[in-house]
Write a protein that binds this DNA or RNA. Sequence first.
DNA 1: AGATTTATTGACAGCGCTGTCATTTCTATC
DNA 2: GATAGAAATGACAGCGCTGTCAATAAATCT
Lengths: 339, 339
Amino acid sequence: MKTTITDVAKYAKVSMKTVSRVLNNEPNVAKTTRDRVLQAAKELRYSPNLAAKGLASSKSYLIALLYDNPSPNYIANIQKGAIKACRDNNYYLVIEPLSMVKANAGDEVEKLLERLPVDGVILTPPLCDDRDILRILRKLKIPYVPVAPTIEVNGVSSVKMDDVQASYEMTDYMIRNGHKKIGFIKGHSEHSASALRFEGYKLAMKKANLKVNESFIAEGDFSFRSGVEAAEYLLGLKESPTAIFASNDDMAAGVVSVASRLGMEVPNKLSVGGFDDTPLAQILFPQLTTVKQPIYEMGHMAADLLINPPSKDDELSSYHFEHKLIIRESTNTQNTLDN
Amino acid sequence: MKTTITDVAKYAKVSMKTVSRVLNNEPNVAKTTRDRVLQAAKELRYSPNLAAKGLASSKSYLIALLYDNPSPNYIANIQKGAIKACRDNNYYLVIEPLSMVKANAGDEVEKLLERLPVDGVILTPPLCDDRDILRILRKLKIPYVPVAPTIEVNGVSSVKMDDVQASYEMTDYMIRNGHKKIGFIKGHSEHSASALRFEGYKLAMKKANLKVNESFIAEGDFSFRSGVEAAEYLLGLKESPTAIFASNDDMAAGVVSVASRLGMEVPNKLSVGGFDDTPLAQILFPQLTTVKQPIYEMGHMAADLLINPPSKDDELSSYHFEHKLIIRESTNTQNTLDN
DNA sequence: AGATTTATTGACAGCGCTGTCATTTCTATC
DNA sequence: GATAGAAATGACAGCGCTGTCAATAAATCT
């Protein structure tokens, strides 16, 4: 038989309500009473029934993680971070992959959340920039935290990293290594990060008084294959870049693979930079210079913001986390003789 | 205001209980009544309150996925499969990563499940072979389905694939390609699959009247790095194998990387086989010959077994799913002249 | 037709907790 | 020491649903 709050109340010789107060850290309980209740709960190995709490307080103690992101690694890290925050607060994480390809993601979300009235929703890219979904969330009055969104919504905190700055740093690093002809492979146009990373690249080029050569900009969609295609194009140019900055690791892996097929040694003949620091980056030969995103941290903060909403006073519109440029083997000083 | 069952009852001019019956597909409701209720529910956009259902029926409509598996890809696929089954049954998936490294995983699980009384638990390797966890689950009387377990428990259905057979097929494929000196890299000793895959390898060798050369067997732990180390050992042998079967893709990637560093062309000088068919397998150059595990299918069935438990009659002890040998570029016919 | 079984429906309590508000006990004040 | 005010505690309803069991309607059998 499962212990209930009534058992604890009897044992501690107080009312149910007092037990409830103690267990929920509500104020106005005498220290001695509090200790007695805590002791009773401990001895009886009491643990609250989530469904009952939920029903009585119209809370669910559930946070939903919505995603439509093909990268298992990204999702795994967001999950880890979010779960940590949930565990520390006796919340639970429900995951719901979505497919934006289907006509209306909004409807799907609506149906989902009408059934499962979660206390908060974490939105990962590209979902966090989907107007339909945001509208539904607002309509259902469900708090949400977008991870790395482009759209800023009034009164909604978000977690992000500085994609522009990170991308700037990578490009700048290549420039400081003597590279002047730097190719760039864009990411999926639906992901807001794509534009930001491109921005950072252009910024660094501009600051260094380097002209952005339009033919050095290739389209990609974050997939390995698109990296291969972009690399084939870039390296097939009669005057090809000496460094290629792919806006994620998968595409960078594509570049490395094309380069090695072409007998173009990385990094001596071609420097390659990636983005994300996926496990792949260390598996590749040579290991990839890349940018480590604070994914775990963002997931953690997103959940935490939903569980412990900041008071209006200290509310920030967005919380920034630090990325890190990770220099490995795929980039090198440009040998000026080669140029 | 959220519609409740009472609203639907009034609208359809029946009792709450009848609505409940209709919505839960219980028998003994007249067709006309059923239709009327369904219509009412639809018009009112009714959706049940999970917490209330849970409280009243002492069910939670939640399935927990417990894992301690460093492979995001494996987890992502299990999750996808499990979620599909959950969605189709109005269940939800709660994920809980565990760390077996910590002293007693059992306690952690116990605390977790006392708080969150889920209707079922999916256990992935290596958790599914942890005696402590199994004991707790039995004690708490929570149904569970182990994915690819070694331990068989009476009355508990499990989902699996045939690791021995799959491994046999890969080895056999190499043998039929003319290879005689086939190296094998074992997986993490804690994962039961490791032993099974090794078994399949030995079986194939035996069937082909090939002697298993002890020095061709290397220890690994499923990590890329361990694959590198194993490959360095195997390829450093004065008489080294012409093919290496690594018991997962990450280790196979390690082999490929060492081989290319050593200027040993894959597959012409060395065939390499992996296991898992992770995205990595297609990203590598050359693309990896590997075994595709029915991970999604196993996740799906695991959740389904928990949601719709088979009746005692048609209960199977374990459900097997088909793997698939995927032949790509990293394996080749052994050139007998080289031998 | 009347008796008996079976299918269909409804009334109502109660799952375990919290919110509201009433009540009691303490503390500070003059 | 009486009194106002604050702090601590408790009584009780009710969150939205389902289980139980009783009541009624329909079907089947002598």
